[in-house]
């Protein structure tokens, strides 16, 4: 590949990569800022949540895990939608970067879903006396977790990058239309079987709690964006390893 004629090089760049060579350093500059922001926001959020906010009347201090549980659940759901958004962009405009964005988002989404499940279980033990309850929210989160794993497994098991990108995009789009159906059906199923659906919205939330929750959510946002950009950078390097601008980076 190093023997490319100039003409080939121009061609290749024009049609296959929108501009990863400009995106790569830009993302690199943004990551430290985002990470710092995430750490600061999380620190303030945790401080307010753990120290400032009062104990819950019914649940004591056990409820404080919601400062992790709720933001990660929100992120897990939101990231899937963002993934589908990039997938649509990829299929319509054939831009490679958007497919890479979707693939970079998936592990963070899966991680958030797993966090939500684990914190849910930790919350459930003191609350309901059991680690796992077939509660509608937990069950649909579990299914969402499997959707993420399926997406990751599919894109990783296809060797050809073009096919991998497009297959992943198709799957994400099918998935995003199914997620509401899954949620709806799981809620239906849950009310039908009168499961232990304990609502976390029973008590009205104090302003301090809300502030802590919002700060933690913002921190989760920043963290997710930073991790995604980081993963996109790695994916770009993998895909573009043979191009001149990557070789000029001297990092391989």
């Amino acid at each position: 590949m190093t023997m490319d004629t100039p003409k080939n090089k121009v061609n290749w760049h024009l049609f296959h990569y929108a501009a990863p060579s400009t995106f790569y350093p830009l993302a690199g500059k943004a990551i430290p800022w985002l990470m710092t922001l995430a750490v600061v926001l999380a620190a303030i959020g945790l401080w307010i949540g753990m120290a400032v906010a009062p104990s819950d009347a019914q649940q004591g201090d056990g409820y404080r895990i919601i400062y992790l549980h709720v933001p990660s659940s929100w992120m897990a759901m939101f990231i899937y939608i963002v993934m589908a958004f990039w997938s649509v962009i990829h299929l319509v405009w054939k831009t490679r970067l958007s497919a890479l964005m979707a693939q970079a988002l998936a592990p963070t989404g899966a991680w958030m879903a797993l966090m939500s499940l684990v914190t849910g279980a930790l919350w459930g033990k003191p609350m309901w006396g059991t680690w796992w309850v077939w509660d509608a929210r937990l069950t649909s989160m579990l299914l969402l977790f499997f959707l993420y794993l399926g997406f990751i497994a599919l894109t990783r098991s296809i060797d050809d990058p073009d096919r991998s990108d497009q297959a992943g995009s198709l799957l994400a789009i099918v998935g995003v239309f199914n997620v509401p159906v899954i949620y709806f059906s799981v809620y239906w199923w849950n009310t039908l079987h009168q499961g232990a659906s304990v609502s976390s919205k029973g008590s009205s939330m104090a302003g301090v709690m809300l502030a802590a929750m919002l700060l933690m959510s913002l921190a989760a946002w920043m963290y997710s964006i930073a991790m995604t950009l980081r993963r996109v950078r790695v994916l770009i390097l993998q895909r573009e390893a043979s191009t001149r601008w990557v070789q000029e980076l001297n990092i391989l």
């Binding site: 590949m1 003409k7 061609n11 290749w12 296959h16 990058p161 043979s242």
Partner: peptide, 14 residues
């Protein structure tokens, strides 16, 4: 015309 496989250019400018 151009073709690529696995991110590698097979031919181009055909």
């Amino acid at each position: 015309l151009a073709a690529a496989r696995g991110g590698r250019v097979l031919f181009s400018g055909l």
